[in-house]
Nucleic acid binder design. Structure first.
Length: 471
RNA sequence: GGCCCGUUAGUCUAGCGGUUAGGACAUCGGCCUCUCACGCCGAGAGCAUGGGUUCAAGUCCCGUACGGGUCACCA
């Protein structure tokens, strides 16, 4: 087999979507696995909707995921330029060639007449197809026109999709579609084919919303006289209601997941497992993915995006990191939330206790903000644990801690145990009131850790606050 | 509506003619325990449906239903 040359060709009309990211990922994996080339091309021919901000967002998202491209914008390459709007000359040239060979022709129909015909067909409940009005008219470049591709009227085109198997399309369902607009800008099917041809792409892996484009594209490859690449159509990603994943299902941009505190390795791991599998294995390092990935293991069925499972995957990845690494990567999220964290021993300790308890850095910040900000006292916790009955306990613990030279775990533990024993109570009876005093709620890491993280001064202050509150 | 693709538990999936249908997320129960979590143990839950083919079908073929995609001078 040829060394693969694959590509990801997003149109810059928005952020990098989860689905697009997965398409890019599968292409990238295939290239990396086979020592091939991964090309990035920007399909910005829809000038109405394409924006520079979107281009930047796509680069940003891909870099965050670690999907580096071998050829494309910013890195260059021998088959550039890599923005379609900079390739207009190439499309014109290829279209001219097709016209000369009678494989394409100029169509002078106006939008108005076409629209009228379409409406007419609709009224008669007919399927509208371009009637071929201009099929055999002489070429007159001086008249306003678009270029249409001449599709054979009979026969069919078949290709073997790498994930779906053989797919046959009868030519009757196709029509002479526009390949070049009046202003010389190519339409999707033509632009993509010309670019894939000139960029020497030999495997096209894309969303399966493109299966119906494939036959007409193959016809164009043949008309242009170029070899037809292999195709792999990847199943769609759905929302919980089985409709195509969209904003109304929640966050769909990869950067949104970054901002929520997901690790790129976890997002990659989750995304690749949505539609691809390798036996029973759930967690994969990037190296393993590169080693194992194959289109033959991509399933043919659309999958529902499940944020819960992605959070689980993220948690698994978080748990693998050292305290140092965890702190380093969590820091920006605390800072972004306005919490005065620093890359220090305290943060490392916070991360060490957060590790088993929170699945994303967003959850870290949300659950453990009391380590960096005043507590928010839960009224129910207060009513239950900050009472006249528990006041003596708080006072005793306060006094005990105040008397400690250093906050060694053993010393704190001894204090709590002796308070429990002296009162003939379980440890929980001591720990819960203290927990509420120090964290504001009834669920938190172990008390010894909490005390150590807060430090003696802050711990005593919070206990004093609680004691005062009880009155 | 035409055409195309798909259908294993709530979800992601393994399976590739003979399995007690396996794993994971989620859910529920138990153990551990200063709370929460982690961890460990356990449970419930699945081959859309009807016909074929075959000694034998989740696996092959056809129909039906359901879901998705696509029918532009969008990509």
């Amino acid at each position: 087999m040829d060394t693969p040359r694959v590509r990801f060709a997003p149109s810059p009309t928005g952020y990098l979507h989860i689905g697009g990211a997965r398409t890019a990922l599968f292409n990238w994996l295939w290239a990396r696995r086979n020592g091939g080339t991964f090309v990035l091309r920007i399909e910005d021919t829809d000038r109405e909707r394409s924006t520079q901000a979107a281009v930047d967002a796509i680069f940003d998202g891909m870099r965050w995921l670690g999907l580096d491209w071998d050829e494309g914008p910013e890195v260059g390459g021998p088959h550039g330029p890599y923005f379609q709007t900079e390739r207009l000359g190439i499309y014109a040239e290829q279209a001219e060639k097709l016209i000369r060979e009678g494989k394409a022709y100029a169509c002078y129909c106006t939008r108005e007449t076409l629209d009228a015909q379409r409406k007419q067909a609709e009224a008669e409940k007919r399927q509208f197809r371009y009637p071929g009005t201009c099929r055999n008219l002489p070429y007159d470049p001086s008249r306003p026109h678009v270029i249409r591709f001449r599709v054979p009227e009979t026969g069919s085109t078949t290709f073997v999709d790498l994930v779906k198997g053989p797919i046959e399309t009868p030519h009757e369902v196709l029509q002479d579609e526009v390949i070049l607009r009046g202003d010389g800008v190519p339409l999707y099917n033509f632009g993509a084919v010309v670019d894939d041809v000139t960029m020497r792409i030999n495997l096209v892996a894309r969303g399966d919303d493109h299966v119906n484009n494939t036959a007409r594209q193959i016809l164009m490859y043949e008309a242009l006289g170029y070899p037809v690449p292999k195709f792999a159509h990847l199943p769609m990603i759905l929302g919980a209601d089985k409709a195509r994943l969209s904003k109304r299902h929640g966050a769909t941009s990869v950067t949104a997941y970054r901002d929520m505190g997901f690790l790129p390795e976890a997002v990659v791991n989750y995304l690749v497992r949505l539609g691809w599998s390798h036996g029973d294995q759930e967690l994969f390092t990037r190296e393993e993915l590169v080693r194992y990935f194959d289109f033959k293991d991509v399933g043919a069925t659309a999958g529902v995006f499940n944020p819960e499972k992605m959070a689980w995957v993220n948690h698994e990845w978080l748990k693998k990191l050292s305290d140092e690494e965890l702190a380093r990567r969590a820091l920006p999220y605390f800072l972004a939330a306005g919490l005065p964290a620093a890359d220090d021993a305290k943060l490392r300790h916070v991360c060490a206790v957060a590790r088993e308890r929170a699945r994303t850095f967003g959850e870290y910040v949300q659950q453990f903000r009391y380590f960096y900000a005043p507590i928010q006292l839960d009224p129910k916790a207060k009513a239950k644990f900050l009472t006249a009955d528990t006041k003596p306990i708080l006072e005793a613990v306060r006094a005990g801690l105040a008397a400690l030279e250093t906050l060694e775990t053993e010393a704190i533990e001894k204090l709590f145990h002796s308070e429990a024993e002296q009162r003939g109570l379980g440890l929980g009876k001591i720990a819960q009131p203290v927990r509420v005093a120090l964290t504001g709620g009834t669920a938190s890491p172990g008390m010894y850790d909490v005390v150590q993280i807060l430090g003696k001064e802050e711990t005593l202050r919070r206990l004093d606050d609680a004691i005062r509150l009880v009155g």
